[in-house]
Amino acid sequence: MEFFIAFINFGLALWLAWRGGPRPAVLVFFVGLAYSLALYLRHATDALPLSF
């Protein structure tokens, strides 16, 4: 589910880049970036914050 959300997030950013304006697309891009970084901390190792 966590990666499903990531794909949907960046899919929305692509959609907004194509159909909406650059500003909402960039906003959603950075939300996705923060979420992806959290996923990275979760999965890169078991010794980082958010890992379990």
């Binding site: 990666f3 794909f7 960046f10 692509l14 990275y40 999965h43």
Partner: peptide, 14 residues
Amino acid sequence: LCLLQRVAFVALAV
């Protein structure tokens, strides 16, 4: 991590 790399490729398309 493989899935995260796919996510990053999608982000690359924005």
